[in-house]
């Protein structure tokens, strides 16, 4: 009997903890936004972070994009040829990439490559009292450390997603046109006819911006909130990857439902 009571109490406690953490995270996020002045006034700080989260993610994004596009073309061709409509292969590859796979897979890769690095770095800065030292030097760590990383993530993510999609389409072209021999003209022309700038590409970009905000905000919060110990930081890093992956998929569903409702 007491175990039941205890487990119910446990659920209650965890719910309350979760809610208060959410509140804390929201306050942290708002503080980071409000104190973003430095990130723009001294844009060099943000550029540095774009290097660490954007440029260093390039390799994994480009290679994954290429392979995802190649696989899409292979699989798509198998299915399409049974209906005799190989010429829409370009459409299939392009739409899958710009609407879904580009933003989502790039964001998942970004979360595990850059997000975890951000959490580990900030967590370690906290554990080694670097953030406290900064505060003692009258420098606000949220403005100096958090905000530039946040904006760097928000800027990098859509660029990475676009590169992922472009590489994927290139991969699809290589496999579909060069390797299998789908007609090059119809591959591109069908794609251009069916892929709409606003509905597909712009919405894809909006998605990736939202994912960029979510992943970076989660990564920064987890780092800032990490217990200042080795286990604390490693646990926070894991949570960053798990939480932001879930957030990406959930947000993707919500955004897709809003964006493509009632459109072919």
């Amino acid at each position: 009997m007491s175990t039941i009571v205890r487990s119910i109490a446990g659920i209650g406690r965890r719910t309350l903890e979760g809610i208060s953490r959410m509140g804390y995270a929201t306050r942290f996020f708002i503080a980071a936004l409000m104190r973003s002045g430095t990130a723009f006034r001294r844009f060099g700080l943000t550029i540095r972070e774009i290097y660490f989260s954007g440029v260093l993610s390039l390799i994994i994004i480009l290679v994954s994009g290429l392979f995802v596009g190649m696989v899409l073309a292979l699989q798509g061709y198998e299915t399409l040829q049974t209906y005799g409509s190989e010429e829409v292969l370009g459409v299939l590859v392009a739409l899958s990439l710009v609407r879904e796979l580009g933003p989502v897979v790039a964001a998942l890769l970004f979360a595990s490559r850059a997000g975890s690095a951000i959490t580990a770095e900030i967590g370690l800065m906290k554990a080694t009292e670097q953030l406290a030292a900064m505060e003692m030097m009258a420098v606000d760590p949220v403005a100096r450390v958090v905000a530039p990383r946040f904006w760097a993530g928000v800027i990098s993510m859509p660029l990475l997603a676009a590169l992922f999609s472009a590489m994927g389409i290139l991969g699809g072209y290589l496999v579909g046109v060069v390797l299998i021999g789908v007609d090059e003209g119809s591959f591109w022309s069908q794609m251009q006819a069916k892929v709409d700038f606003e509905e597909d590409i712009l919405n894809g970009v909006i998605k990736s911006v939202v994912f960029g905000i979510a992943v970076t905000a989660i990564a920064l919060f987890e780092g800032y909130d990490a217990p200042p110990t080795a286990e604390g930081v490693s646990g926070a890093t894991t949570r960053t990857v798990v939480t932001s992956s879930l957030a990406i998929l959930a947000l993707d569903f919500v955004l897709t439902a809003f964006m493509f409702r009632g459109i072919s």
Partner: peptide, 25 residues
């Protein structure tokens, strides 16, 4: 303040660590 464990900024070299406050303030 000199922190007990140094608390140097690990992403900057020694020069930048000492220059930090001059650049900030």
């Amino acid at each position: 303040m000199l922190f007990q464990f140094g608390a140097l900024f690990t992403d900057m070299n020694v020069f930048e660590n000492v220059a930090f406050q001059m650049r900030e303030h």
